[in-house]
Amino acid sequence: MRNTVKNAIVATIGSGLAVGALALAGPAAAAPTGAETAQQTIKKLQDEGYRVIQTRVGSGSIDNCNVSAVRPGRDITELKAAPRGNTEERVRYTTVYVDLHCGG
Rank of each mutant, 00 (worst) to 15 (best):
T12Y: 06
Q54I: 06
E78L: 13
I53S: 00
T12W: 06
L17W: 05
N64F: 12
Q54T: 12
T77A: 03
S59Q: 14
T41I: 09
G49H: 04
S15E: 14
R56W: 04
V98P: 07
Y50Q: 04
R51W: 04
Y50L: 03
Q39H: 05
L79N: 12
A81Q: 08
A38L: 05
L24T: 10
Q46L: 01
I62T: 15
E88K: 13
I42Y: 01
D47A: 11
E88L: 09
R51T: 13
V91Q: 06
I76L: 07
L24E: 11
A25S: 11
R56Q: 09
V91P: 08
K6N: 10
K43V: 13
L100C: 09
C65M: 08
R56F: 07
R56G: 02
V96Q: 02
L17K: 06
A38T: 01
A35F: 11
N7Q: 12
G16Y: 11
V96M: 03
Y97W: 10
A81Y: 00
G16T: 09
V19R: 14
I13W: 02
H101R: 14
K6F: 15
G49I: 11
T55D: 12
K44V: 00
D99W: 00
G104C: 02
S15I: 15
R51Y: 11
M1W: 02
A69P: 02
A18W: 00
L17I: 12
T37C: 11
G16Q: 06
E88V: 15
A81H: 03
T95L: 07
G104T: 06
G85D: 14
A38E: 04
A69L: 01
C65W: 00
I53T: 05
D75W: 02
A28S: 14
C102S: 01
L79E: 13
D63W: 09
L45G: 01
A8F: 12
V10F: 01
A11V: 15
T87G: 06
A30G: 13
G34A: 08
P83H: 01
M1C: 06
K80C: 09
N64S: 13
R51P: 02
P72G: 05
T41R: 09
E36F: 08
V91D: 06
N3R: 12
K6W: 15
R74T: 11
V5W: 08
V70G: 10
T33F: 07
V96P: 02
L22D: 04
A23I: 05
P32I: 11
R56D: 04
G16H: 07
Q54E: 03
A38F: 04
H101L: 12
I9H: 01
G103W: 00
G60V: 10
V57K: 08
N66W: 08
G20W: 15
